[in-house]
Amino acid sequence: MLKLLKKICEVGIITEQFNLNDTTDIEFIGKSCRKLINKYFASSLAIRMVDAGSCNGCELEIQALNNPFYDIERFGIHFVASPRHADMLLVTGPVAKHMEAALKATYAAMPKSNLVVAVGNCGVNGGEFGVSYASLGAVSNIIPVDFTIEGCPPTPAKLLTGIMQAIGNRNV
């Protein structure tokens, strides 16, 4: 037990203050989004994530948002198990035909005032898989999409920026 506590103290808080070199400053977006989240989502934005046919690459990077470096919860954003609790639907693709009904049902179970974000090149435009006997391609072919985050897969930093931009876009 002491060793465990020692390790926790030694490592300390490693969550990063973002100052990315590109044009978007996550810390800045995060703070302004925090205001919007406080105002419109009662201080917390709940995300339901659905893999509609992804290769699992995007999922690994979305999972990374919960690691101590990115710690997405500090912005009031967290992942939930039920679409009924969700303000945002994060969908990776391409949408496999076998997932069409499940994706539609998840979307239908959400509260009306929701945001849908398509993640990854496959979710955005079908990527490597396109449209075929088994794949429906982009998420927007199935449900209305408010915002897209490209990448194969998008990095956690890119995901974080995208999620925040999606919130910002909605209420500006």
């Binding site: 893999d51 046919g53 496999a96 076998h98 997932m99 490597e128 898989f129 075929s132 088994a134 794949s135």
Partner: peptide
């Protein structure tokens, strides 16, 4: 089979 994307055919 839910994420069957037709990789073999593709």
């Amino acid at each position: 089979g839910y994420v069957h994307k037709g990789i073999e055919k593709l």
